[in-house]
Amino acid sequence: MPLQVSGEVLSIKRVGAYQSLTVIAPGIPELTRPGHFLAVQVGGPESSMLLRRAFAIYAVKDRGVYGGTVEFVFAVHGKGTAWLSARRPQDKLDVVGPLGKPFRLPKAAVNVALVGGGYGSAPLLPLATALRERGCRVDVVLGAGSADRLFGRLEAKRIGSSIVVTTDDGSTGQRGRVSDVLPAVLEKNATDVVYACGPMAMLKAVAEQCAERGIPCQVAVEESMACGIGVCMTCVLPVVGSDGLTRMVRSCVEGPVFLGDRVRWDEVGTVPADAVGAPGGPR
């Protein structure tokens, strides 16, 4: 169950091309699991930006002097994130969270691969810790456009059993994309389960590579959201249910984490003709 908390910025710092912001938000840390996200009000109380911005939760602390903090990592994209990047300690920040369905963890100590693209590694790092605590082997693949857009490389190296890095421009690691190196990682480590977070094109490629090998994978998607709490129906994508029927489901409440083989990747952005309730489709 999410909380709306009128919080306060504890710290904000630059991390490569990103900013990492920690907000004092008592109550939220205790409820948070890896994969949950936060919806942040931007622009102040009289802002002309009415909608919250969604960010994956990176780290939480439920104790300490400040009584509960939540950290997220973001790239400046438009007006809202530009405003966020100008926040300073003690500024007010209204946040709602934790939101969405988190990653589901395996019961047994299996071999896991984590695939992060850009800031998509943020929710995977706490997941890596949780998996290690369960005795899982954790191999990490991180990719980004360039070296400054890799997030959490050192931390991943510390938590993970192995790490492979790719960049589009070759500024660090192997030149190329995560999907160029993932098959070898899966093979070498006899991976049982894959978790991925990053741009939609990357998630699609990862989901397809896993499907080819029969490896279950969970992906955290990023769809444009107006409310983040399930009331507006803007954040939908076509997902196949356990009954085999495709529905347009809300990624903010039924996701953002989905099983990779359930998302109709080629039809994201459209309403497939066989979706429940599509014109002429099943009801």
């Binding site: 002309s48 930006m49 009415l50 909608l51 769809e223 444009s224 107006a226 507006c232 129906m233 803007t234 954040c235 939908v236 994508l237 529905r247 347009m248 994201v268 952005g269 459209t270 309403v271 979706a275 429940v276 309730g277 599509a278 489709g281 009801r283």
Partner: peptide, 15 residues
């Protein structure tokens, strides 16, 4: 009856 609605993007923030 059930209805799937329109394709996405379904929203744009405006002033």
């Amino acid at each position: 009856n059930a209805r799937s609605g329109r394709a996405t993007p379904r929203m744009a923030e405006t002033p």
